[in-house]
């Protein structure tokens, strides 16, 4: 009943699709975590207006579906003169989405830094810059690293939706293959397994990076 051999001619399509998903995920992870770090710092140290603005951004994104955010960016923004290609719109949606979630995660890490630790660092003569990066930010990242890893993987899996605005990602490849070969179940099964393997690969890569990043420190929690 199942027939996977019909999919073989399309292996190039699958690999191209996988590559698009990988590249999107790579940029979204780096950019999203950067946005999250900036917003978390703003929410932790900033004034009332800044805190309020970041809070609204986070809640607005966390309480609406990714696909609606994507449609709003891709179909809605051109109406006010902001035209983006499908790829740009997909990446922007992922950045905004991961940015909001990672803001909340990183903020929890910042809040968990003991005040005395910051004061001690200041007394030892570290500059504010050094205090923020070495005493607050990196230990905060170590604490929330597992949660951040999961969130990045969730955003990668969520990126399957960008196929709906014709970004040629892995899901787009599956849709294309099923429309040509009429082997819909097999095509989606293969692609689902590819996503699963990529998710496992991402988790291991994050763990590997984490081991390097936090090599010299062990914060007991």
């Amino acid at each position: 009943m199942l027939n996977f051999s019909d999919l073989l001619p399309y292996s190039d399509l699958l690999l191209q699709g996988l590559w698009v998903t990988v590249v999107l995920t790579f940029y979204a992870t780096l950019g999203g975590v950067a946005i999250g770090t900036a917003c978390a710092a703003g929410r932790h140290y900033g004034g009332k207006v800044l805190r309020g603005a970041i809070g609204s951004y986070v809640e607005l994104i966390r309480n609406t579906p990714f696909i609606v955010q994507l449609f709003f960016i891709f179909f809605g923004l051109p109406a006010i003169g902001i035209k983006l290609s499908a790829w740009e719109a997909g990446l922007l949606a992922m950045l905004i989405n991961l940015g909001a979630y990672s803001t909340e995660i990183i903020r929890a890490g910042l809040a968990a830094t003991p005040k005395a630790q910051v004061e001690a660092a200041r007394v030892l003569g570290l500059s504010p810059h050094q205090v923020f990066f070495r005493v607050v930010l990196i230990p905060a990242f170590e604490k929330i690293y597992p949660a951040l890893t999961s969130q990045c993987i969730i955003v990668m899996l969520g990126s399957a939706v960008v196929s709906q605005i014709s970004v040629m990602d892995l899901t787009y490849a599956a849709n294309l293959i099923q429309s040509r070969s009429f082997r819909s179940f097999e095509a989606y099964l293969v692609v689902a397994v590819m996503y699963l393997l990529f998710a496992i690969f991402m988790r291991q890569t994050f763990e590997w990076v984490g081991r390097r990043l936090f090599r010299h420190r062990r914060v007991s929690t």
């Binding site: 009943m1 899996l157 939706v161 196929s163 099923q178 819909s184 689902a192 996503y195 496992i200």
Partner: peptide, 22 residues
């Protein structure tokens, strides 16, 4: 748990939709 947490919800939808009709 690993299977459903490691694959996109969209794929799960497609697989149920096309799998059951298969």
């Amino acid at each position: 748990v690993e299977l459903f947490q490691g694959t996109p919800l969209l794929m799960q939808l497609f697989l149920v939709f096309f799998g059951l009709s298969l």
